[in-house]
Amino acid sequence: MQTKRMTFTGSRVLPYLLLAPQVIITLIFFVWPASQALWQSMLRQDPFGLRTTFVWFRNFERLFDDSHYLVSLKTTAIFALGTTVLSMSLALLFATQVNRMIRSRDAYTTFLVWPYAVAPAIAGVLWWFIFNPSVGILPYMLEGLGYDWNHRLNGTDAMILVMVAAAWKQISYNFLFFLAGLQSIPQSLIEAAAIDGASRSKRFWTIVFPLLSPTTFFLLVVNVVYAMFDTFGVIHATTEGGPAQATTILVYKVFRDGFVGNNLGSSAAQSVILMAIVIVLTVVQFRWIERRVNY
């Protein structure tokens, strides 16, 4: 790791004092709970919480035999994929269009960035209202098209609802990164291709899009992490995992099994699996950023 060539040498205690607040908070609220989760994931409590036994990896084995958990894994994958694709493709579309503009660029940017400030839970409530079967506007319009929308009964409708809400909030983030990525592409490359007679769409797919790939990979990881973990509010404030668990993503299941179902061993085992997923995604992301892939 890099350091300054020249450093302060006189005081031996000072650096530890400076680090103390951050390290103490990290130890109490991160390292300790995470190790507790690891420990609890190997324990099982009887229903009254009177006796606890050490069961090694039985909680994990039980999870992977549990059809509810496997369904929830699949739900999470669908949800993460759908949210990521929806919000990234819209953001890329908007970013390429804004990037053509000269005078109106800032105005459009302002209009497109503010949803970043809306909390996921609020985004959920907003779309829940729009999709509400009795007062919402979209079900009314869908009815005109002959579709009977009801996210309270229909699992697919509920999934679409939470996906739209989660993707809507994330558009602004993706948009900003795509716009920054587009602006760093040298104009000379695009001009050279234009002189050689490449059409606009050919220039986009053969020059711009490949040069944008570091941004795209970065956003892909960030969006998957967002969809898996930060969307708890979207789901909890609207569908509450229903109907019939159609929108129970992994994070929501950890919460419900731990706090509502009081099944601590299983909830801890699920936490451990989630931590493993986050760590893998972070490592993948760092490797990609280090290499700065282009093609």
Partner: peptide, 14 residues
Amino acid sequence: MLPVEVRIVPTFEV
């Protein structure tokens, strides 16, 4: 690496 959401139960206990 670890968002609050993945370790809620033990953090709550602390």
